[in-house]
Design a protein around this nucleic acid. Sequence first.
RNA 1: GCGCCGGUGGUCUAGUGGUAGGACAUGAGCUUCCCAAGCUCAUAGCCCGGGUUCAAUUCCCGGCCGGCGCACCA
Length: 587
Amino acid sequence: MTQVSAEALVELAKRRGFFLQSAGAYGGVSGFYTFGPQGAALKRNIEDTWRDRFAIQEGHMEVDAPTVLPEPVFEASGHLDGFDDMLVECPECGQSHRADHIVEDDPDTGIDEAESLAPERIEEVIAEYELVCPTCGTGLAGQAIEQFNLMFETTIGPGSSAPGYLRPETAQGIFIEFPQLAEYARNQLPFGVTQIGRAYRNEISPRKSLLRVREFSQAELELFVDPEENEPDLSSVADARARFYPAAEQDREDGKPIETTIGAAVEEGIVADPWIAYYLGVAAEWYQRIGLDMDRFRFRQHRPGELAHYSEDCWDAEGDVSDPGAEPDWIELGGFAYRADYDLSKHDAHSEEDFTVFKQYDEPITVEKATVDPDMSYLGPEFGGRAGDVADALADLAEQESDAFEGEEVSVEVDGESYTVPVEKTGFAVEEVTESGKHVTPHVVEPSLGIDRALYTALDHSYREDKVDGEERTYLALPPEVAPTTVGVFPLMDKDGLGERARELAATLRDDGVSVAYDDSGAIGRRYRRQDEIGTPYCVTVDYDTLEDGTVTIRDRDSTAQKRVAVDELAGTIETLLSGEDAFEDI
RNA sequence: GCGCCGGUGGUCUAGUGGUAGGACAUGAGCUUCCCAAGCUCAUAGCCCGGGUUCAAUUCCCGGCCGGCGCACCA
């Protein structure tokens, strides 16, 4: 198995049109990449296979939300606070540190949630407790806190009254439309919503070409489940094999990944949540399908410290993209999180919509329910403008603590003020009501995959070097399904009518929906090599025999072997090769 | 954002205080009956700005971009 250095891969990517740094004519811009012709085609094919597997095969809905959303969305999602890094620079050694972490790490401050504090407050705390630089011990009092928000900010419409942000993940676009999406799903759980789209993070320091960028594509599935009832059918992925690297193994000195099947991983408790396990299985098969080497792939469980506070269990898909001879370099390709009701509850609380679904009971049930029907002709004159709020408070109190209505009077608090109302004026009553169901906030299972990183890793893992007749050759062993071009069509020479015949053939194949590269330049070997280097799996050559008997040669990229096939059968042959029905040796 | 190193055609690279040479690739032509062959010709480059200088791609400063390390990666 050939390994390729990042340098060589990036060089090939630029030279052959997979990806290049954007805006080179203007000095380049860090963290932005343009996909060239091959890269755009490869990316589209990868996205198509993702769509096929995660949306179509699962029967889920695909949506397409805006990349710009208004500020309140990110207040609710927590990105506005969570993305605001407060950095403080040491005047002595020049090291930057997270100011909120320094505050949290000092037990004397008694603060363990500094992230939500204002920067001015952090500066005060640093001065007050004489906090020092963790690196060199110099006092940090008086140093300015620099704020850095990882979200790109913009304004919506003229003026600055409506701030908006480029989404840092595609998921929020799905969550905020949940009420309507649930309607489209006829309020039946479970249902899944997918989205493939761009997301933006204003990274401090983009690195490693495509692997850490400021604009990238994500493919996300949000599966909304009823936590009490829904369970996945694991049978379809039970045999999928992968390497699992549980948190416990990572903490051990000699810990290592465990290679097993999804079915066994669930049985042995390696993966606790069956939904997560299901999508690990689906994803493992998908990564293999787009060309990843499963020997350089693993699922790694988040260690307790890495877990987001809402997540009970989270696994990452990781790929090794190390240089030849180097230690493995694992990069995160995707995350699989059980997000519980975190997102929907947040939006339910912050917005005016209902982010629940109504779940009907098998049988209606009868419950005792305390209600109020306040006498507003009393409350109005008595409390003036607060009467409405008092009535609401009474209703809440009745629901939560009906005992409070047992005396002559009942008191409620509104904005810190206490209001006392005679019980007889509250219309308090306990009645039997029939409930046919209840509102539940669905839980979210979220497989979230980075398309750019998947593409990069697929290129990295499919890079090959070998020798053909003593000549060195570079090729990409991309799966035919995702290769940017499926077939190269060449005339052996562009004369004696071979060119016309080949062009006809190219047009026919294109008409059949095959992605074709036509090439009649220079020597035939050069044309083969060109296609090899962009991963074109098959090349078809029109030669003198074609004019005689209507057959062409078809050449296999990986083996460079050739076979003769009748022109009439070519489209069908290619189709069976693409579907995997036949191997090249079998045609 | 900090530190170190770097930036010459599409790619790889030589070189220089007097504006650049090669290889590969690309295009045209010749040749060629299946794997980067050969010949001829052609296209194409000193990251940007400022300074020093008669003159800067070269020296100095700043910026941009890249690599590595640190920090960051919700």
